[in-house]
Design a binder for these strands. Structure first.
Lengths: 220, 220
DNA sequence: AAATGTGAAGAGGTTCACAGCG
DNA sequence: CGCTGTGAACCTCTTCACATTT
C-alpha cells in the first residue's frame, strides 16, 4: 500500500498520548520500558526505541528520554501543532456525531463547512455553520479552504462526493462509507484517504467470535 | 499482535462486499482479476487467490470462482450468518450515533442494552431500549446475554467499563475510547478488543498533510 | 487459451543480542 | 549498572513465476 518508512503513525500517536499522561503525572523523563508499561505492554521497548531513533529523537543512556522535547517533536510529526479546517460531507447521524465529537474533544479541528443532499437538512445550522447543498461544494470550499474532509454519505454516493471534494482543494479524506475510494487531483498532489468501515470492524469481532467457538483452526 | 493465519479479515470483508456487488450485477462467476478490478485494484489478483485458496475455496481454472458458494462461505467465516446482540456503553453523541447506525444499516446487530453514567441520560428510552446505569450492567447483561459491546465512554472510564462488561459475559468489544484496553475474563476465554481511535485516524491524515509539504523524506 | 493453485523469492516490519554511553 | 542505539536474525505477509487444470 504505502511505501512505509519503518514507523507506523498509530504507534507514534500512542506514544504521544502516553507521554502526555506521563507528563501530567509530573514526570520529566521516561524510559522506553516505562513507555511500554504505560501502553499496557502492547509495544515492546525495543520497538519504541527503534521508532524514536528513526525520528531522530535522542535519549540519555541510563536515564531515558526527556518528555517535553520528545512530545513536541511527535506533535510536529503528527501534524498536531496547527489547527485544521474540516468539511463534513453527509450530515446524517454519523456526520452529525462526528462534527459534535470534533467540537467537543478535538479543538484543533475546526468544522467550517457542512454538506448534505437532502433538502430537509440543507439550510439547517449547526454551531453557526450552515448546511449547504453538496452540489455547491466546489464554490463553498474554494472560499472555506478546507484541506480535510469527512465523508459520511451512503456508499453509492461516496466516490462522486470524494471527487467533488478533491476538485475543490481537499487533500485528505476520512471516509466512513463502505466503499473503496479512488481519488486523484488535477494538480497531481495526492489525496490521502483513510477508511473507517464500522460494519467491517464489527465483522472482525464476529469473525473472532464465530471461529473462536472451535478449538483453533490449523492451516495445512 | 495476533498469530495471524495468512489472511486478513478486512480483506475477506472487502471480497464479500465485492461479491455481493457482482452478484447484484447478475454475474454468477468471477475471476480473481475481476474481483481486483471491483476492488479498485487495491488488492492484487495473486493475493486474492492466495486468500481464497487458504479458505479452502476452489475455483474452476479457466473460468473463475462461483460467486454464490464463495459468498456464503465468506459470510460464514466472517460471522455474518447469524444475528448478534449488542450492548452500548456510553450513550453520548457517539454511542447514540452508533446505535442509530446499527439500527439503520446493520440489521444483524440488535441493540438490546444501553448504559450510561449520567443521571440525565439514565431512564431515557431509545427505540424501546431503556438506558440503564452502568453500575447495573452486570445484572442487566446477565439477562440480556450480549456477546458484543461498544465502548463509547471517556478514556478514563474505559478500562473499568470494559472489565465490568467482560465480567458480565461480553466476549468482544469495539472500543472508541482513546485508551489501550487490557481485558481478561475469569473463565479464561479471551475478550476480543478492537480499537477505533477517531482522533488517531485524523492524526494519520494531518501527519501526511504536514510531511507531505516537503518533497519525500528519505531515511538514512 | 484462460485462469487457478502454489512453491520460491522478495519486502517490510519486529525481535534479539549486545555494543556503547552516561 | 542502567538504558539507549543498532546491526543481524527472524518472521510474516506479499509478489513473482510457472506448472496445472478445464
Amino acid at each position: 500500500m504505502e511505501p512505509g518508512f519503518g514507523v507506523s503513525i498509530p504507534r507514534l500517536y500512542a506514544y504521544h498520548r502516553a507521554l502526555r499522561e506521563a507528563s501530567a503525572a509530573g514526570k520529566g523523563t521516561i524510559t522506553s520500558h516505562g513507555l511500554a508499561t504505560l501502553l499496557g505492554e502492547t509495544i515492546a521497548p525495543t520497538q519504541i526505541r527503534k521508532d524514536l531513533c528513526a525520528l531522530g529523537a535522542r535519549g540519555r543512556r541510563g536515564h531515558g528520554y526527556a518528555i517535553k522535547p520528545l512530545s513536541a517533536h511527535l506533535a510536529w510529526v503528527l501534524g498536531l501543532e496547527h489547527d485544521w479546517r474540516v468539511a463534513i460531507a453527509g450530515f446524517g447521524y454519523l456526520g452529525h456525531a462526528f462534527a459534535t465529537f470534533l467540537a467537543a474533544r478535538e479543538r484543533r479541528f475546526d468544522v467550517v463547512a457542512i454538506f448534505d443532499r437532502s433538502p430537509q437538512v440543507i439550510g439547517q445550522e449547526w454551531q453557526g455553520v450552515r448546511v449547504d447543498d453538496i452540489a455547491d461544494a466546489t464554490r463553498v470550499l474554494r472560499a472555506a479552504a478546507c484541506e480535510i474532509a469527512v465523508v459520511a454519505v451512503p456508499a453509492e454516493a461516496a466516490q462522486g462526493v470524494a471527487e467533488t471534494l478533491a476538485g475543490a482543494g481537499v487533500r485528505a479524506i476520512l471516509n466512513f462509507a463502505p466503499s473503496t475510494l479512488r481519488v486523484h487531483r488535477e494538480d497531481g498532489m495526492p489525496v490521502v484517504v483513510r477508511n473507517i468501515d464500522l460494519a467491517g470492524e464489527l465483522s472482525i469481532l464476529t469473525h473472532r467470535l464465530a471461529v473462536g467457538t472451535m478449538p483453533a483452526v490449523e492451516e495445512a
